[in-house]
């Protein structure tokens, strides 16, 4: 399926007869990237799938009010990030054992049948999971997704300077983790 511009998609969406087709194109166009973004936050595939579906459900309900002050991609990413963070919060609250995110997600990672990384990658993920939530999201977006700071700034509603600082702190902590673990 060829990619449509935001304008084309929104025009199609506003037309009742092509609304579903437009949204199908949005899912097709952005779904995969959103999935991987969510997956790195919630770690478990099944959780990422749930969050992705919630994200698109929210997007469907809110798209009529979307005023193109941001790009569609930015808007969807913002919904996905918020949904993923809320999901983790709810998961933590539901847990009978008081765990922080790092402990909870590290345990999930160990048992994840859809993790095919080697030991080094497992260590890297565990080091990332030890970061504070915001730093973790920033690190994933910058390091793995190679997203420009300007774009991240629009998604996370944080200044470029603050994002750079977050990323720098994250890198330092991960390096320290590897040095201390003598890997």
């Amino acid at each position: 399926m060829s990619d449509y511009s935001d304008e084309q998609l929104l025009k199609m969406f506003r037309n009742e007869s092509s609304r579903h087709k437009a949204f199908g194109c949005i899912v097709e166009q952005y779904g995969r990237r959103l999935y991987w973004h969510i997956r790195k936050i919630v770690i478990v595939h099944e959780d990422a799938d749930d969050v992705l579906q919630n994200t698109f459900e929210k997007a469907w309900k809110g798209l009529s009010d979307f005023r193109q002050e941001a790009q569609l991609f930015t808007w969807l990413y913002r919904i996905a990030t918020n949904e993923a963070v809320s999901f983790l919060q709810q998961k933590r609250n539901r847990s009978t054992i008081p765990l922080d995110d790092a402990e909870m997600l590290s345990a999930s990672l160990q048992n994840d049948s859809y993790f095919s990384g080697d030991q080094i990658q497992m260590h890297l993920q565990k080091a990332i999971l030890k970061l504070p939530e915001k730093q973790r999201i920033v690190f994933n977006m910058k390091y793995f997704e190679e997203m420009p700071y300007q774009k991240m700034s629009a998604i996370l509603d944080t200044s470029v300077g603050a994002l750079k600082a977050s990323y720098h702190h994250a890198v330092m902590k991960i390096k320290a983790y590897f040095e201390n673990a003598s890997i």
Binding site: G24, V27, E28, G31, R32, Y35, W36, R39, K40, H45, D49, L52, D112, Y114, F115, S116, G117, D118, I120, Q121, M122, L124, Q125, Y143, F144, K164, Y167, H168, V171, M172, I174, K175, F178, I183
Partner: peptide, 27 residues
């Protein structure tokens, strides 16, 4: 990379996978 380089053995390949055919029917 800001703040120095990571050890060389680190790479950016995603260690996560999805079930077969997941992206085929998720739309």
């Amino acid at each position: 990379m800001t703040g120095g380089k990571f050890p060389e053995y680190l790479h950016k390949d995603s260690p996560f996978t999805v079930p077969d055919g997941y992206f085929d029917d998720f739309q």
